[in-house]
Design a protein around this nucleic acid. Structure first.
Length: 176
DNA sequence: GTAAGGATTGGC
DNA sequence: CCAATCCTTACT
């Protein structure tokens, strides 16, 4: 039996939230009432202003503002001029953290999954706890997770580029 | 106003 | 390997 994740799930530290997301179910409901349910396979944690890979390390700007809000909000941003990235804000207010959703069942890669679920700038600031267009459910099943280095952030330097803050559902062979 | 570069992807 | 493509940010 599945139930929607509540505020208290997201308001914890990102390093507590991120490892619990693989195996949860991302639910997308469209205007016409149709619903897509996809298991989350892979995520990455971005933690605070001191994490040089986290966008908040560049300061509090219009773009990063949502990460300073309470956990459960959605942070969307465009990368390389063509791919929208889906992120879940975590932690309490004034703690800029987020989880990048890197892969879901059927769509490998952060850019492809947002395209597949029709997610873009209009979802910036949407609340996963109250929205009827997108939310996350817990199946109650126990999940096995492995951690690894984050991808595409070598520019952040030591120690940030080496933190094992990517979390992948084990048993999934899509990322061998 | 101008310029540089990016939490990616797919094609050569 | 490398170009596509455009928004955000930093600087004049």
């Amino acid at each position: 039996m599945s139930r929607r994740l509540e505020r208290s799930f997201y308001t914890r530290d990102v390093l507590s939230v991120a490892p619990e997301l693989p195996g949860k179910v991302l639910v997308r409901r469209y205007e016409d009432g149709s619903i897509l349910r996809k298991t989350i396979l892979e995520v990455e944690a971005y933690r605070g202003v001191e994490d040089l890979a986290c966008h908040a390390s560049k300061g509090r700007t219009k773009r990063t503002e949502i990460m300073y809000h309470t956990g459960g909000m959605i942070y969307m941003y465009l990368i390389y001029g063509m791919y929208w990235m889906l992120n879940f804000v975590t932690g309490e207010k004034e703690t800029p953290q987020a989880v990048l959703i890197r892969g879901i069942e059927g769509f490998n890669g952060p850019g492809r999954l947002t395209r597949g679920l029709t997610l873009d700038k209009s979802f910036y600031g949407v609340d996963l706890v109250t929205s009827d267009m997108i939310w996350v459910e817990d199946t109650g099943d126990q999940q096995a997770i492995i951690s690894a280095k984050r991808i595409g952030i070598d520019y952040a330097g030591d120690p940030w580029k080496n933190m094992n803050w990517r979390f992948v559902l084990t048993g999934d062979n899509s990322y061998e």
